[in-house]
Amino acid sequence: MSHTAHIPSHRKPRRSASKIALRAGVAGGVLSTLAVAAAAGTANAAEPVSETIEMPTLTADLSAQIAQSADATQQAADTYESRAEQDAAAAKAAKQAKEDLAKAEKKAEAERKAEAAAKKKADEERASRSTERTSLSTQSATGGGGSTASNSVAPASGSVGAVISFLKAQLGDAYVMGASGPNAWDCSSLVQAAFKQAGVDLPRVSQDQSTMGTEVGTSNLQVGDILYWGGKGSAYHVGVYIGNGQYLDAANPGKGVVIQDLSGYPASGAVRVL
């Protein structure tokens, strides 16, 4: 035995092959990882860098604000549209009013002209009637004597024509109860004035006129006969027969002095004073 055998050796113990292999594997793995990392770094360096912007997250308040803004925008649009419609309607109404006013003025002007023409015509007819009345009065005064009202009247020749001419000259005059001319009559005043043209003085009222002259049947009438409606002596209306089944009278306020057919309103009786 060596005299140094009991002294521990200062050599490092040999590593076993398995430990060496393990360490080599670890080292290789590290190197491989570094190599891969380096390669990845090189690849990443070659690629372009892009930046990702993160969009803000919509919160409840932001959503409410957006909704309110949309509502306000819609309300404004509706308001503008409503105003536009109102303006269009107002413009249309103004145009229509202007057209209506023009039509009304045109119609009023036409009515004024028609009224003026009617008045002129009425004045001319009135003047013509007045002239004819004057002429008839002159003819009556120079054509022969008259007589007082009685049941036996002897009028001058041609007196029936004077009566009928006077009556026709009053056509269109008004009917007014109690009136005695020259432009308004009631039934008996017209008959009285007409027969006065022939020199015959008749009573003023229809009741008395129905008792004058000679009673004749309504089927045997002659021009100039006095027609009456109602009872003899109590007649309520009178007129004068002018031939062809017609008579002339101051009918009523609605008609005035007119010519009518006996077939439409048959008389109760008739008297002849001429």
Rank of each mutant, 00 (worst) to 15 (best):
E125G: 08
D225V: 05
R83A: 08
E51C: 10
T148P: 09
K121Q: 13
A84L: 13
S150V: 07
F195Y: 07
S128W: 10
Q207T: 13
I226P: 02
Q68K: 00
Q222E: 09
T42V: 10
E105K: 12
A40H: 08
A117I: 06
S2F: 08
D100K: 14
G146C: 11
L221M: 05
C187Q: 00
A174S: 11
S157L: 01
G161N: 07
I259K: 03
D261Y: 15
Q74K: 11
A127S: 05
G178D: 05
Y80N: 09
P266L: 01
A270V: 01
G217H: 02
A154D: 09
A88H: 08
R11W: 06
V191E: 11
V163D: 06
T33D: 08
G29I: 11
A43Y: 11
C187I: 01
E81C: 07
S206E: 01
G143A: 02
S268D: 02
A154I: 13
V26R: 13
G172Q: 12
K168S: 14
E47G: 13
Y175F: 03
R204L: 06
L31K: 04
T4D: 14
E132W: 05
K106G: 14
P253S: 01
D100P: 12
F166E: 03
A64M: 01
T4S: 10
P8Y: 03
A90H: 05
V191A: 06
Q68C: 04
S50I: 14
G181F: 05
C187N: 06
G28E: 07
S130K: 15
E111N: 12
A149K: 12
G224D: 02
A193Q: 04
H237Y: 01
Q197I: 06
S152D: 15
G145Q: 07
I20Q: 10
V163A: 01
L62R: 00
S32E: 15
D71H: 15
M1T: 13
A70M: 02
T142F: 10
N252D: 06
A184W: 00
G217V: 04
S159D: 04
G224Q: 03
Q139D: 14
K19I: 14
D249M: 14
L34R: 11
L171W: 08
S150I: 07
S263M: 00
A270N: 04
S2Y: 06
P266S: 01
A193H: 02
Y247D: 02
A114K: 05
P203S: 07
G29N: 05
A127T: 04
G181W: 11
